[in-house]
């Protein structure tokens, strides 16, 4: 239990780190760390339930999310020479305030029916829920295409954590679905980034406002 909370704390912490970091390299590493924590949670779940398929899934997640995806992103960074991530909409103090508000909302009484699905895991579930909200906020706040992708991927990780703790993940099909989803996402992301870069010369998605009429 404590270990699970620890790993979930790692996930939560990496998201906050994602909000604050300025270097893209750090972003990729943070994602790798987050996925590692997820793998650990999955392994923990395997040990608890003894479902052999979970072991395979944990291995798969490890390979794809911890190794392949960050490598892919690092390659992207080096190809486009993006060492620094572009700016955000809100400055750091305001970002932190909003992060605090969102965490508070996720832990609040109003969302109790959602986080109280398994009363024993209440704190874990609310942590996972706040991770979800923070990932969404990451997508909203940042202007670079890479950060958007990171936001979506960490959103997925948070959902996986939520479903594990809510006792919903028992089917391997779900996990396989998520992995498949990540593959598709990587393809879309590459295409998206290369198109923006080719057309606008930078990865700043606010430049897409020139497409508006």
């Amino acid at each position: 239990m404590l270990t699970l909370q620890f790993f979930l704390g790692v996930v939560f912490g990496t998201i906050i780190f994602l909000h604050l970091t300025k270097k893209n390299f750090g972003v990729a590493l943070a994602y790798a760390l987050q996925s590692l924590a997820i793998t650990a949670i999955l392994l923990g779940s395997f040990f608890e339930t003894g479902n052999i398929s979970l072991l395979f899934i944990a291995l798969l997640v490890f390979i794809v999310k911890v190794i392949l995806a960050p490598l892919f992103f690092i390659k992207l960074i080096q190809k486009h020479r993006l060492l620094f991530s572009v700016s955000t909409y809100l400055n750091i103090p305001l970002t932190l305030i909003i992060i605090a508000i969102l965490s508070f909302v996720a832990n609040s009484h109003k969302l109790a029916p959602l986080t109280g699905i398994i009363p024993a895991n209440h704190t874990l579930l609310s942590l996972a829920l706040s991770s979800m909200f923070l990932s969404l906020f990451l997508i909203i706040n940042r202007k670079g295409a890479l950060s958007q992708i990171m936001g979506i991927l960490s959103f997925e990780n948070s959902i996986v954590a939520f479903t594990i703790f809510a006792g919903l993940e028992q089917s391997p099909a779900l996990q396989l679905g998520i992995i498949f989803n990540i593959f598709i996402w990587l393809i879309i992301a590459t295409v998206f980034m290369s198109m923006i870069y080719k057309h606008f010369g930078s990865l700043d998605i606010t430049s897409m406002k020139h497409l508006k009429d």
Binding site: F133, L136, I140, R142, Q148, T206, M208, K209, H210, K212
Partner: peptide, 12 residues
């Protein structure tokens, strides 16, 4: 607005 961030904030 043509801005992805605003659209995602609408979703949020």
């Amino acid at each position: 607005s043509g801005n992805i961030n605003t659209y995602i904030s609408y979703i949020f």
